[in-house]
Amino acid sequence: MSIIENHQTHGAPFSDSPKLTARNVGVYYGDKQAIFDVSLDIGANEVIALIGPSGCGKSTFLRCLNRMNDTIDICRVTGDIELDKENIYDPKMDVVPLRARVGMVFQKPNPFPKSIYDNIAYGPRIHGLAHSRVELDEIVEKSLQRAGLWSEVKDRLHAPGTGLSGGQQQRLCIARTIAVDPEVILMDEPCSALDPIATAKIEELIDELRENYTIAIVTHSMQQAARVSQRTAYFHLGQLIEVNPTDQVFTTPEHALTEAYITGRFG
């Protein structure tokens, strides 16, 4: 069953200053196991890329990190995941504040059918982050600015968010996530539905965001992983094969499967 011995990940899966630590994580959909015994640290203020062929479990693993898998009835997670030394699967842990701390951006841009302003203000409103209209306006403007969208939409804040272009919509979703002021941002193939120009803008944005946030990004594109991340984790059939600094993964991969993947022998 196991491709690598005892699920022993090659390279350096652990970090000195971890923000998130995952230990022996397994995920089951009903009887079917999707993730096998994955242990990985995500360091503070780093961008880590999760790569691997389709169906390798990288998105599933990402969704464990803020318990998005809870929304799927039949999904079950084993092992430990800690955020700042706090077990997020503790029964006493409330997912609501957890997800406020670990935000998520999805594969397809999914703006709410509301105005641009209300899309951004949604998170701060539900979490009670602003106590006045002025404060809320500030948060909205700041978030849009950080997402690089402010100049494009400042004159039509009350137009529907669904009216923006695909790339703008995705930046709107990132701005929406930033507005809640999370500590970690999870991105699930954020550029897969976008054209190259929009993709470049998002990648630029990710690089800027690294200063303040810890980012884990699932990507299908090795170039993207190489451009935005400091570390890269390679998943294969639900197992974490290798984790190493990005340069190293793309130049001298440790494991034969990693090499096969980055040289394009399967994908």
Partner: peptide, 13 residues
């Protein structure tokens, strides 16, 4: 479902 995910992802109940 993506709209629900977006909302849950922001920490909405």
């Amino acid at each position: 479902q993506s709209l629900r995910d977006g909302s849950y992802g922001l920490g909405a109940t």
